[in-house]
Design a protein around this nucleic acid. Structure first.
Lengths: 210, 210
DNA sequence: CTGTTTTCCTGATAGTGTTCGGAAAACCGA
DNA sequence: TCGGTTTTCCGAACACTATCAGGAAAACAG
């Protein structure tokens, strides 16, 4: 078929997508600088040398902008999941996931806030974006299942523990590592709880063999 | 001294304090009904049959209203602390404190949000109100110290765990008990971790799972 | 060069918290 | 009851916010 070079229509849409991305980049910068609620369409338009109303050519509303940021954040999180080292050691897996989440939070607090706390007044993710969040959730879930953790209650406990560490880190020591350095301890605590202590595991193994 | 009955000046100030309380009551109702960010000075004034500007006679700003709610929330929390059953059993103490916090959260999500999440855009508690929050913090801290838990890291782990359970409960299952029912398990996990494991129990757990 | 589509802006609406200045009301002491 | 003081309340206005409607300008398509 005759589609060797990009048609003009495509180039037009590419340009549309490009400025859309420019807006999102400026939005990230604004949010990074002043917090999640510092996002203002007026300021955004000013940064991009246009009138606020022009933004509506690219986004249906301010919340639509948030929605794109939300989706992008979840995609980034999925990327980091994909880059995790593969291993069979449950404790190592738990540690990696915990560090993934907490460092995702400290890397860009506003992004973590957008994804996991409900700090933007009227924002609710669109179905498409929410699906990404569910994907993240189930990715974590199956990563834990892969090392033998398939109990609902255990998973809830785990997410509560990790979310607690992340949110406390952001709230009480945003520039330090007061809670970050508890991760190994938290992993040990949780693993001991669900797998039994290392000693108990050994006892258990020998019992099973017998 | 001639101060047997209340002087007019006092009555005047009493009246001032009374309408101040009326405003706060209406604010609570509004926040309870529509969430923490549904608080609007215009709507508030409308409910009380006055003009929005009149509220400034009683509160310097909208955030000052939030500040009073914040302080009241912390006082309520201190009250609940005072009502805790006295006991020497560490695990029971941990359980009571955890239940205290999580039920405080589920009883009135908006209040918990105001106190422990940073969901109101520009609000920061005044020094006086913040002191109450610190008081709550240190009350919890000394309650744990009383049963032998005086390590900084342990305390941080504990607060992270409890805060995680509470916030996950509100975010993922506001009307249920999905995380609330994990409290006993969480207490056991944490207690085993800091006080030493009950090996027999864990072996038993492992066997049951196998 | 025409017709169509996309982009952008002017103008306006409705909402927010907040400040100013003065009027009204309440209170106080005599 | 009267005059002076203090407190309360409101009309008007300001500076913001997101958003809608309509039309002009620009970009593109054939």
């Amino acid at each position: 078929m005759h589609s060797a070079e990009p048609r003009r229509r495509d180039r037009r849409r590419a340009r549309h997508e490009a400025t859309k991305q420019e807006i999102l980049d400026a939005a990230w910068a604004m949010v990074r600088a002043g917090g999640l609620n510092a996002l203002s369409l007026r300021a955004l338009a000013h940064d991009l040398d246009m009138e606020p109303q022009s933004l509506y050519t690219y986004f249906a509303s301010k919340n639509a902008v948030y929605d794109h940021l939300f989706a992008a954040g979840n995609r980034e999180l999925l990327d980091r999941f994909a880059r995790l080292e593969q291993t069979d050691d449950p404790r190592q897996v738990l540690g990696e996931i915990a560090r993934l989440f907490v460092s995702f939070a400290t890397d860009e607090p506003a992004r973590y806030e957008l994804l996991f706390m409900r700090t933007v007044p009227d924002f609710e993710p669109s179905p498409g974006s929410y699906a990404l969040a569910v994907e993240v959730f189930s990715r974590a879930r199956s990563a834990l299942a892969a090392v033998g953790l398939d109990d609902d209650a255990d998973f809830d406990m785990w997410t509560a523990l990790v979310a607690g560490l992340a949110s406390q880190q952001l709230a009480n020591d945003p520039d330090g590592d007061r809670y970050l350095r508890l991760i190994d301890d938290a992993v040990a605590m949780f693993a001991d709880h669900v797998f039994g202590t290392q000693a108990a595991v050994n006892v258990n193994r020998s019992l099973i063999r017998a």
